[in-house]
Each structure stands twice: as C-alpha cells, then as structure tokens.
C-alpha cells in the first residue's frame, strides 16, 4: 500500500467572485521511501497539491490519504509529526526576528518534547551547520545556510514524509548541489519519503524515482526516471518541457 494516496484531487480558489480551478482531478500515489517529483510551469498547480496536503488550500473534491488514513481537518498534531514541508524561499520562510534556536525549538515546545537543547544542537549538526549558528538571526545567514535551517526545522519532529516546494530554485548552482546532496543523504539515513516540486527537470531527474508532469492544474503524464532520461514520454506537453531542458542533458 502506498504511503501517500491522492485520488481525484480538486482545489478551487475564489478570487473577486471568479473561480480559479488550480488543481483538477489529479491522482497520484507515493510509496514509502520513494522520492516522487511534480514538474510543470508556474501556475500548473504543483505547489497547490503540496499545500492541499498540509491543509493550506481549499480542497473541493477528491481524497488524500496518508498511511491509508484520510486526513482530519484541521490537520492536527499527529499530522505534523508525520509530514513536514520545506518552502521555496528561505528568505521568506524563517521568522526574521526569531533566532535560529527559537525557530528550531518551537516545534519541540508545541509537541511537548524534552531535551530541547541536545535536539537543536544535533539538528544543526545533521544539516552541516556549526552549533554556534543557534544564536544567529536569519539575516546573518546566506541563502544556502537559511535553506539548511529550514530543512533542520522540518526535521525537528522526525517526520517520515517531507514535502519539498522548489527547495533549491532560489539558490546558486553550487549551493543547489550542496542542498540536493544534503537532502539525498538525509533521505537515505532516515528512510524519508519525498514529494518534491520543481520546474527544473534536471533537479527532478537527479532526485526522484518517478515524476508527474502537470499543466493547467491537470496531470499530463507520469514518467519513471528511466523513461524521462530516455525521452520516452508520449504526450506533446511533456515532450516540449523536455525539449526546453535540452541543455540540461548529460553530454555524451
């Protein structure tokens, strides 16, 4: 049985009396310890799916099950212990006036976990930051360091699922490489399941076992990693997306 099962999901926003159907009837399933990618242009609804899982988008149809259980609304504490999210922009996703220590210890306080001190130090070590960074503010860190803090924060409650929303698109190429390596290492060490959104096919290919191509809120085509690399897609849209990424191919 799959760990994350999404069936026929629809999300509709209402803005100025106009209905925007951001996600229309998308189904996907992610197995335990698998890394699943969502790819598509902006506005294709890929981030909205992650937000819907977290209860941050109005679900108007379909079901989401995690470990076979439908999700309660509001999501509740048990959900946060199991699922955490890393956002795209490390400049916007950390509280600017909280120290790293406060950012990292807050989830522990909410969930009544002991050993705050040791856990914070260990979390920083796990993402490769010096322990002294505890007492810094986000503006005293570089973009890559902030994204490491965001990853550390997501891992504080030891979840089994990480939702990654364009985790490296705001970062330089070299820092992107470091962050992707970190995520892969953590996934192996902790047996995590990834559901990852990116518009960069090369990043998705590097990180994911399977990928769902989306366009205008609908699922276009699901591809296994091997099919993607071999250009074995069958729909025109997936092919055009692949063609636009031609410079990201492995030179042979």
């Amino acid at each position: 049985m799959a760990l994350i099962e999404i069936e026929n999901l629809s999300v509709t926003f209402t803005a100025k009396g106009r209905k925007v159907r951001a996600v229309q009837g998308v189904s996907l399933s992610v197995n335990e310890r698998e890394s699943f990618g969502l790819v598509g242009e902006s506005g294709s609804g890929k981030s909205t799916i992650l937000r819907a899982i977290c209860g941050m988008a109005p679900i108007t149809g379909g079901t989401i099950r995690i470990g076979g259980q439908p999700l309660p609304t509001p999501r509740g504490r048990a959900f946060s212990r199991q699922v955490q999210m890393v956002f795209q922009d490390p400049y916007a996703s950390l509280h600017p006036r909280h120290t790293i220590d406060r950012t990292l210890s807050e989830p522990l306080a909410i969930h009544g976990l002991a050993d705050t001190d040791a856990r914070v130090v260990q979390a920083l070590k796990d993402v490769g930051l010096p322990a002294a960074f505890r007492f810094r503010f986000p503006h005293q860190l570089s973009g890559g360091q902030r994204q490491r803090v965001a990853i550390a924060r997501a891992l504080m409650l030891e979840p089994s699922i990480l939702l990654l929303d364009e985790p490296t698109s705001a970062l330089d190429a070299s820092v992107q490489a470091e962050t992707l390596n970190l995520l892969n290492r953590l996934r192996t060490e902790r047996g995590l399941t990834f559901l990852m959104v990116s518009h960069d096919l090369a990043v998705i290919d590097h990180m994911c076992d399977r990928v769902l191509v989306m366009q205008h809120g609908r699922a276009v085509e699901e591809l296994a990693r091997e099919t993607l690399a071999a250009a074995g897609m069958t729909t025109d849209y997936a092919r055009s997306l692949f063609a636009a990424s031609a410079d990201r191919m492995l030179e042979t």
């Binding site: 190429a173 070299s174 992107q176 490489a177 470091e178 992707l180 390596n181 892969n184 290492r185 096919l201 090369a202 990043v203 290919d205 590097h206 990180m207 993607l228 690399a229 071999a230 990424s245 990201r248 191919m249 492995l250 030179e251």
Partner: peptide, 29 residues
C-alpha cells in the same frame, strides 16, 4: 563555455545535475 579552462568555471558547470546523470552526490565547488 563547456570547454572552459579555468577550474572555477569547470566547477560551476560540474555541480549542476543532468538528466540521465548518475545518482551519486553532485561534486561540490
């Protein structure tokens, strides 16, 4: 550019993931 001589330029190019590339960790810069 892909035939850049300077090790820094080469490093910048090498740390990018590639479609169909190997799954090992990306080289650091």
């Amino acid at each position: 550019l892909t035939r850049a001589k300077h090790p820094y330029t080469q490093g910048l190019l090498n740390c990018l993931p590639r479609i169909g590339g190997p799954r090992q960790p990306l080289p650091g810069l």
